[in-house]
């Protein structure tokens, strides 16, 4: 379970900048939440804090009751770009997490093949990232995090550089996964449909300093054919309304 209480984050450079203030929410084990909000409102900042890569200046962040710390093994972070290393092939990129953890090579190979097969990228294992499509690249990034058997997925606009069709394909893949594994998931996105399709709860942020403006419950997420249901469109309109009018 993820529990965030009165979180405050300040960037301390020459001038200090208050990026997040008074952010509180909880995410129950195995649930998903989508975060949406204007550019610069601190969405990435929040994920970095959850990933243990950035220290917070106030409040509390608890993951399964423990204060967040760097290198928590069961947390996976997937970024929009640059997640893959250009000098490693798809397979080497997928192996990276296991390699860093010193997993023996036999076991590593098996886990990597399993994850890559599951995402349909095993046949591209010898390609370098430059030789993969944007969608395939994100599949590699997902496969890499899957090899580590995470219980918390943090994703920062993972599909935003993809075309609409590829994007929907990956959203479906991600949903299937989540339904199979039931890991907790925090997804930052700019795309309203994506937020409604993948978030059981949608947190709408506003900026300067970043805080939660509104929470929309979306329990029907994951239902068969949700994308084409009336309710889905209603939720999307509702999210749009809150973003535009602030209520």
């Amino acid at each position: 379970m993820l529990k965030i209480e009165d979180l405050e984050v300040t960037y301390k450079n020459k001038i200090s900048f208050l990026a997040l203030q008074g952010v509180s929410f909880t995410l129950e084990e195995g649930h998903t939440c989508a975060i949406i909000g204007p550019s610069g409102c601190g969405k990435s900042t929040l994920l970095y804090v959850l990933a243990g890569l950035l220290e917070h200046s106030g409040g509390q962040v608890l993951i399964n009751g423990e204060t967040v710390r760097p290198k928590r093994r069961e947390t996976a972070l997937i970024l929009q770009d640059y997640g893959l290393l250009p000098w490693k092939t798809a397979q080497e990129n997928t192996s990276l997490g296991l390699e860093i953890r010193g997993v023996p090579s036999e076991e590593k190979r098996a886990l990597v093949e399993e994850a890559m097969q599951e995402l349909g990228i095993w046949e591209f294992r010898d390609n370098y990232p430059a030789q993969l499509s944007g969608g395939q690249r994100q599949r590699v990034a997902i496969a890499r995090s899957l090899t580590l058997k995470p219980d918390l997925f943090l994703m920062d606009e993972p599909f935003s550089s993809l075309d609409a069709l590829t994007r929907e394909g990956l959203q479906n893949t991600l949903l299937e996964f989540w339904q199979k594994r039931r890991a907790s998931m925090v997804l930052v996105t700019h795309n309203i449909e994506e937020a409604v399709f993948l978030g059981q709860r949608i947190l709408i942020f506003s900026g300067s300093p970043g805080r939660i403006l509104h929470v929309i419950e979306n329990k029907e997420m994951g239902e068969q054919g949700y994308r084409n249901q009336q309710l889905f469109y209603q939720r999307c309109s509702r999210v749009r309304e809150v973003i535009e009018k602030g209520v």
Partner: peptide, 27 residues
Amino acid sequence: VNKSMVDSVLSLGAGEMQIYRHVIFPS
């Protein structure tokens, strides 16, 4: 060297030496 690249490898649990080995040096 791109910071997001370093961050994503850090998030895999890499230590400083591994950052040099997998990210900084090849880059």
